[in-house]
Amino acid sequence: MNEKTKAFYASLHEKLSNEHFPLLYMFKFITPSNHDKIALLTNVFDENAEITLNQSKKGNYTSISARTVMLSPEEIIRIYQKAAEVEGVILL
């Protein structure tokens, strides 16, 4: 993990530490409209997550929103880290 990425996760952890957990949290991602990549991203969530998919007008990209209950800042960061492993994904 490079320094910029470490700084991002440290900043996120600091912001999330001010929240009260458990917390209903919304994750947002953009990925190329590829079934395999969409499946990899949706599989980072458990069966209780409410997942919404929206394709771009031209169909080249898909936005993924997932609402789920998180128990700690560390749990949120783990999901972002897993999602970041998918090539071409943009974390929002």
Rank of each mutant, 00 (worst) to 15 (best):
N2G: 15
N2D: 15
E3W: 08
E3K: 15
K6V: 12
K6Q: 15
K6A: 13
K6H: 10
A7F: 10
F8S: 05
F8L: 15
Y9R: 08
Y9I: 06
S11P: 00
S11H: 12
L12Q: 07
L12V: 14
L12W: 03
L12A: 09
L12F: 04
H13A: 14
E14G: 03
K15M: 13
S17Y: 07
S17L: 02
S17C: 02
S17N: 08
E19I: 03
H20E: 14
H20Q: 13
F21G: 04
P22F: 01
P22A: 06
P22D: 08
L24W: 06
L24C: 04
L24V: 03
L24H: 06
L24G: 03
M26Q: 15
F27P: 01
F27D: 04
F27G: 03
F29S: 08
I30A: 08
T31L: 11
T31P: 02
P32V: 10
P32G: 10
N34G: 02
N34V: 04
N34I: 08
H35N: 10
D36T: 02
L40F: 10
L40G: 04
L41S: 04
L41W: 03
T42H: 07
N43P: 00
N43K: 13
V44P: 05
V44D: 09
F45E: 10
F45I: 08
D46G: 12
E47Q: 11
E47H: 12
E47G: 04
N48T: 13
N48M: 07
A49K: 11
E50F: 10
E50I: 08
E50G: 01
E50N: 13
T52S: 06
L53W: 02
Q55P: 06
Q55K: 12
S56E: 01
K57G: 02
K57I: 07
K58D: 15
K58P: 02
G59C: 09
Y61C: 02
Y61H: 11
T62P: 01
T62M: 01
T62E: 02
S63G: 03
S63Q: 09
S63N: 12
S63R: 03
I64V: 02
I64L: 01
I64N: 00
S65V: 05
A66T: 00
R67W: 02
R67F: 07
R67C: 08
T68L: 14
T68W: 05
T68D: 09
V69W: 07
M70Y: 09
L71C: 09
L71V: 12
S72A: 14
P73K: 14
P73E: 06
P73R: 07
P73W: 07
P73I: 09
E74D: 14
E74F: 04
I76C: 05
I77A: 04
I77K: 04
I77C: 01
I77H: 04
R78Y: 07
R78P: 00
R78Q: 14
I79F: 06
Y80A: 03
Y80N: 10
Y80E: 11
Q81N: 05
Q81S: 08
Q81R: 15
K82R: 13
K82E: 13
A83Q: 10
A84M: 10
A84E: 05
A84H: 05
E85H: 05
G88E: 02
G88M: 05
G88N: 12
G88L: 08
G88D: 12
V89F: 04
V89Y: 08
L91M: 12
L92K: 10
